[in-house]
Design a protein around this nucleic acid. Structure first.
Lengths: 159, 159
DNA sequence: TCAGAATCATTAGCTATGAAACGATTCTAC
DNA sequence: GTAGAATCGTTTCATAGCTAATGATTCTGA
């Protein structure tokens, strides 16, 4: 979508201001985001039978060791309900373990297991190779500038 | 995820080359893509009870008037099955209409209806305001440079 | 000519996700 | 001390999307 700016400008410009840069940027960003997810899911995660969100959660646990479920939801950008479902799956695979907070039994901590560490340490290098491949066509300076601009977008929009 | 590069470098750098720029760019791109979808769905499309993909398809039909279902699938980045389901919904709402190709009855064309045009012409300006809001924190030159870099990413990766 | 391959759209079954409801637990104000 | 508000995680229900199977149609090669 959004490939024919001149046409669309004809269609509505009488009533509305059109900013082609906004169209190009927003459309491209969404397309690339989906492309990244699809590519890495198919090329890296699929053969290990682990979903994008599960990988993201296992990664967080690998880095931080122990997290509350609500922190995991925030970090992975999914709802508490999704975390609850994913935790059941990961726990069935013995990749992590839930523990009730003794001080406040409403809270639940999640801990990565040794088996969970094995899996993520096998998986991550391959995932990172995929990340590198995606940006390898850009010069280092362009990568840095892009990172800075994206960071500003995230901050401005609270993404 | 991917917020603690130093930690992760410690964890696997003995075996693997880490490129922080690749991590920052890929992670940010995915996060922004999801953020854009969520924001525009909630702030613009939700009150009109139309999904992101349905909007995208209606937009394409608005621009091109008449398209084959397989073209719609490619343009919207979803499967033919999804198009089939969405077409049923849009047809029930009388926003578009399916027609069998008389030359090859395996093919189906989709045409936007007058009511479909009304809906998209009411909806699009508001959607575009959302697009503008997302990038408004960036200077015009930065927007242009970003668009160019994203375009290269799309081309390199065939996204 | 015509049998099988190819190419469509559609359907069925599945997974992932979110919103809302729910029960358990803790906090707060009096 | 205690009733009500707030905050958890979980469950339930609904929706979006995909893969694989299906049926209809057209093409192809002998």
């Amino acid at each position: 979508m959004h490939t024919e700016e001149s046409t669309i400008i004809q269609k509505i410009s009488k009533k509305t201001t059109i900013e082609p840069n906004a169209i190009a940027v927003v459309t491209s960003l969404y397309r690339i985001g989906q492309g990244i997810k699809n590519k890495l899911e198919q090329e890296v995660l699929a053969k290990h039978k682990i979903s994008w969100t599960s990988f993201s959660i296992l990664y967080d646990l690998w880095i931080y060791g122990k997290m509350e479920t609500k922190e995991l939801a925030l970090s992975a950008g999914v709802s508490k309900a999704t975390i609850s479902n994913i935790m059941r799956t990961l726990e069935n695979k013995s990749l992590c373990r839930r523990e009730t907070d003794p001080r406040d039994r409403r809270n639940t901590f999640v801990v990565i297991t040794p088996k969970g560490k094995e899996v993520i340490e096998e998986l991550y290098p391959e995932f990172h190779e995929g990340e590198i491949a995606i940006v390898k066509g850009l010069k280092t300076d362009d990568q840095k500038q892009l990172a800075a601009t994206l960071y500003k977008l995230i901050k401005d929009n609270k993404f």
